[in-house]
């Protein structure tokens, strides 16, 4: 489903954010990327839907090369949902308008059909009663669930999560993780940048550890937690799993 081949990315001329990254993610898999800040996790995620321009290598999503000149990047992105650390809901629109904007504008769905679908998805994430609230009237957890609903409304083949719980109060993390766990169990292909190790244990098929723009270690969640091979991984785990 996603093939990342020898991708390198520089910011400016000397700062290398990603160094020769290769990874294959098959359909229906959940992959968790962790690592210290500045390790290139988010950059890698953004390479998958073309929000970041890499200088070397190739990323192929569902058979389409992301940076090929003849690729319709808007079409590709419409099939890849993304959820952000700071939600990035449109503050001037209600939850409903946030969710229906792309289906109506990009997919050309009729407005009433998009609305019915939005209600259905909001029920799935557990907050149908917030449909006509503005983001400013929602809690952090609710905002992130609306953001997930917004991405799901496009019926994506892949979902990308960029630290979806890092900006949340502790008591709101679970409501967001529960939604993500349901999604993973329903067979969604997911790439998640996160340090939620409980989530990783429960649903991740593979865990990738990154540092300084490289993949230092990858493996199943069992291997990863029980027998980390790399010294740097062990150090990282000992710090976050107090």
């Amino acid at each position: 489903m996603i093939e990342i081949k020898n991708v390198s990315l520089w910011y400016g001329t000397d700062h290398r954010a990603l160094e020769d990254i290769s990874e294959t993610i098959s359909s229906g898999q959940t992959v968790l990327i962790c690592g210290p800040s500045g390790s290139g996790k988010s950059s890698l995620l953004r390479c998958i839907n073309g929000l970041e321009h890499f200088q070397q290598g190739e990323v192929i999503v569902d058979g389409v090369s992301v940076q090929a000149p003849d690729t319709d990047i808007h079409k590709l992105r419409s099939d890849v949902g993304m959820v952000f650390q700071h939600f990035e809901l449109y503050p001037h629109m209600t939850a409903m308008e946030n969710i229906t904007l792309a289906p109506v504008q990009v997919r050309k769905k009729p407005e009433n059909e998009a609305r019915d679908k939005a209600i259905e998805i909001l029920e799935r994430v557990g907050i149908p009663e917030k449909a006509f609230k503005y983001p400013g009237e929602l809690s952090g957890g609710q905002k992130q669930r609306v953001a997930i609903a917004r991405a799901l409304a496009m019926e994506p083949k892949i979902m990308l999560f960029d630290e979806p719980t890092s900006a949340l109060d502790p008591e709101m993390i679970k409501e967001v993780l529960d939604v993500m766990i349901d999604l993973a169990k329903a067979g969604m292909t997911m790439v998640v940048v996160s340090h939620e190790m409980g989530f990783a244990r429960e649903v991740a098929h593979e865990i990738i550890f990154m540092d300084k723009g490289r993949i230092l270690e990858k493996g199943t969640s069992h291997e990863f937690f029980a027998h980390p091979k790399n010294e740097r991984t062990r150090l990282f785990l000992s710090r976050i799993l107090i």
């Binding site: 839907n49 929000l51 808007h74 079409k75 992105r77 419409s78 099939d79 890849v80 949902g81 993304m82 952000f84 700071h86 990035e88 809901l89 449109y90 904007l101 792309a102 504008q105 990009v106 953001a147 917004r150 991405a151 496009m154 990308l160």
Partner: peptide, 14 residues
Amino acid sequence: PRGQAMAAHSSGLT
């Protein structure tokens, strides 16, 4: 904020 444009682009908007 830049994130707004990122969110919009990520959903396939031109």
